[in-house]
C-alpha cells in the first residue's frame, strides 16, 4: 500500500512563521492595542478594590433589585457576600473588572459588526466562518499567539477573553435585526424614514431583547475564559483554581470555582432580566 500521508503539509511551520512575522514586525502595534484595554481594566479594578466592600455589596443588591426584582437583588448580595467570606474578595473584584472590560470591548466592536452583517449578506457570509473559528478553537490554542503578541498578564488575559466571547453578541445582534418584521421596516420607509432612522428607531429597539441575550452569553463566555486566562498570568478567581490544580489543593480550587459559579449566576440573572424587560415593553 502506498502511504498517501508520506508527504505532509508543513502547516505548523507556516503558522509559526506567520505568527513570528507578525510578532517581529507588528509587536508595537499590538502593544498599542493593549493600551486602552489596560487603562480601562486598571481603572475599573482600582475602583472596585478602592470602594468599601459594603458599598459594592449594596450596589449588587440595588442593581439586582431594580433590574430583576427583590429576589435577584437578595440573591446577588448574599452570593457576593458569601464569596467575600471565603476570603476571595479581591480576586473576585479583579475578575469582575476583567469581565466588564472584556464585555465593554465586545459590545463596542461586536454590535457594529452585527449591524453590518445584518445589512449585507456578503459580509455575513465572510464573517460567519471567522466567528465559528473564534468560538470553536480551543482556548489554549490562541493563548500562545496572544502571549507572543501581547506578552503575559491580566491585560493579555482580557484580550484572549475578548476574542473568545465576542461571537455571541455579533451573531445575536445580526439575528435580532434580521428578525424585525419586514412589514415594520416597509411601514417605516413609507413614512419617509432614512436608513439611519430605520436602524435607530425600529431595528435596534426591536432587536434589543435579542442583543441583550447575546450580551448575556458574551458575559457567560467571558467568565469561563477568565479562569483559563490565569494560565498566562491573568489575576482574579482563576488564580486560586490554577494554584489548587497545580498543588492539588482541592479546597482552594473549590472555593475559586464556587466564586466563579456564583458570580456567573448573579450576572446571568441580572442581564437576563434586562433582556426580558425590554421585551415586555
Amino acid at each position: 500500500m502506498i502511504d498517501i500521508f508520506k508527504y505532509t503539509i508543513p502547516l505548523d511551520d507556516w503558522i509559526a512563521v506567520a505568527v513570528e512575522w507578525l510578532v517581529g514586525n507588528f509587536r508595537p502595534q499590538f502593544q498599542a492595542i493593549k493600551m486602552p484595554i489596560e487603562v480601562m481594566l486598571n481603572a475599573i479594578d482600582d475602583a472596585l478594590l478602592w470602594l468599601p466592600e459594603e458599598i459594592v455589596l449594596l450596589a449588587f443588591l440595588i442593581i439586582g433589585w431594580k433590574t430583576a426584582g427583590w429576589k435577584v437583588g437578595l440573591f446577588s448580595i448574599v452570593s457576593m457576600a458569601f464569596i467575600g467570606f471565603t476570603g476571595l474578595w479581591d480576586e473576585t473584584m479583579t475578575t469582575l473588572a476583567m469581565v466588564i472590560s472584556a464585555v465593554v470591548v465586545c459590545v463596542l466592536i461586536g454590535v457594529p459588526l452585527g449591524i453590518l452583517s445584518s445589512r449585507s449578506d456578503r459580509f455575513e457570509a465572510v464573517l460567519r466562518p471567522v466567528l465559528d473559528a473564534m468560538q470553536t478553537t480551543p482556548a489554549f490554542v490562541y493563548l500562545v499567539p496572544v502571549v507572543m503578541l501581547f506578552s503575559i498578564g491580566t491585560v493579555a488575559g482580557v484580550i484572549a477573553t475578548i476574542i473568545f466571547s465576542m461571537p455571541p453578541i455579533i451573531r445575536l445582534t445580526n439575528l435580532g435585526i434580521r428578525q424585525v418584521h419586514p412589514e415594520l421596516i416597509e411601514a417605516t420607509y413609507s413614512f419617509g424614514a432614512t436608513k439611519r432612522q430605520v436602524l435607530w428607531k425600529v431595528q435596534i429597539p426591536l432587536a434589543l431583547a435579542t442583543i441583550m441575550a447575546g450580551l448575556n452569553q458574551t458575559i457567560m463566555l467571558s467568565l469561563s475564559m477568565v479562569v483559563i486566562a490565569s494560565l498566562i498570568g491573568a489575576g482574579g478567581l482563576g488564580v486560586p483554581v490554577f494554584e489548587g490544580l497545580n498543588s492539588l489543593k482541592v479546597g482552594l480550587a473549590g472555593i475559586g470555582g464556587l466564586g466563579i459559579v456564583l458570580m456567573a449566576m448573579v450576572l446571568d440573572r441580572i442581564t437576563q432580566a434586562m433582556g426580558t424587560k425590554e421585551e415586555q415593553e
Binding site: H181, L184, E186, A187, F191, G192, P205
Partner: peptide, 18 residues
C-alpha cells in the same frame, strides 16, 4: 424621502404598528 414625508402615508393590512 421628502415626498413620502410630506404628501403620502400608508396603512397596512397587517397594521405594522411598532
Amino acid at each position: 424621502v421628502d415626498i413620502r414625508r410630506k404628501y403620502m402615508s400608508m396603512v397596512f393590512q397587517s397594521f405594522a404598528l411598532m
